[in-house]
């Protein structure tokens, strides 16, 4: 049976007053999730909390032993349902209208990993001392790059980091579910943009390389690095090491 070691941590960072990020993981069912409540709006922490709560209920319930071929469908449906819940929460409590969150999760089944994803939190793969960003950021810059929106359709002053997809922002949402085969020794890193905006990928790679045999340190080391570079946002990190297959 595949042995996955998971460690996760979240931090308010240096500048912010409150933490709207959330993280959850369960090694027994080999699944975890990172959620970043959308800043600038009330209720980001509630939204990310709902993701964690529903995710935990889902993976610890009867669907925890899902067959691999059903995983993409089940997880896409889960995030769509969570989206509907958060959206209708915002409709019911008007002062929190527009609350939202990102969600990037991971589920290991046998020798595969499934990564449901919506927003600009990220999943990376560290393997053979290389670091690859697996998920596509759902923001303006990425959307233009992939041809999902036309550059001319974007107003001039729009920041390229503005989200184009998030959980709870509209009645329906499109969720990506990535999947790949895994190998022993690989480390999957899920993080909120509080890490990836502060620490560039090369630095993340160095930290992973140096600590690949002590993965329990990784979340705190990465958070420290982000704080040392300004810590302008909440920072959340979840690492999943494929200890053996």
């Amino acid at each position: 049976m595949t042995n996955i070691r998971m460690f996760g941590e979240t931090s308010v960072g240096v500048v912010r007053d409150s933490n709207q990020d959330s993280v959850f993981y369960d090694e027994r069912v080999q699944a975890g999730v990172v959620a970043d409540g959308i800043g600038g709006r009330k209720g980001g922490d509630i939204a990310s909390g709902i993701v964690i709560q529903e995710f935990a209920r889902f993976i610890q319930g009867r669907k925890a032993r899902m067959p691999a071929e059903q995983a993409p469908e089940l997880y896409a449906a889960l995030l769509e349902d969570i989206n509907a819940k958060i959206y209708s929460f915002g409709e019911r409590y008007r002062e929190m209208s527009g609350l939202g969150t990102t969600a990037t999760a991971i589920q290991f089944i046998g020798q595969q990993a499934f990564i449901p994803h919506c927003g600009d939190s990220r999943a990376y793969l560290f393997t053979r001392d290389h670091l690859f960003q697996l998920t596509i950021d759902h923001n303006v810059a990425s959307s233009i790059h992939h041809g999902w929106i036309d550059r001319s359709a974007v107003p001039q002053n729009t920041k390229r980091s503005v989200l184009t997809r998030g959980i709870g922002l509209s009645p329906t949402v499109e969720v990506d579910v990535y999947h790949l085969s895994i190998a022993a020794g690989q480390i999957f890193l899920l993080c909120s943009d509080g890490l990836s905006d502060m620490v560039d990928d090369r630095r993340i790679l160095k930290i992973l390389h140096k600590n690949k045999h002590a993965t329990h340190h990784l979340p705190s080391l990465l958070i420290e690095e982000a704080c040392a570079r300004g810590g302008r946002d909440n920072i959340t990190v979840l690492t999943c090491e494929v200890a053996s297959l």
Binding site: T127, R128, H130, F132, D176, V177, Y178, H179
Partner: peptide
């Protein structure tokens, strides 16, 4: 040097 391929923006091949 290794490279990862991404297919249909959802599955991965490699690294190779």
């Amino acid at each position: 040097k290794y490279y990862l391929l991404r297919r249909n923006q959802e599955t991965f091949v490699g690294p190779h």
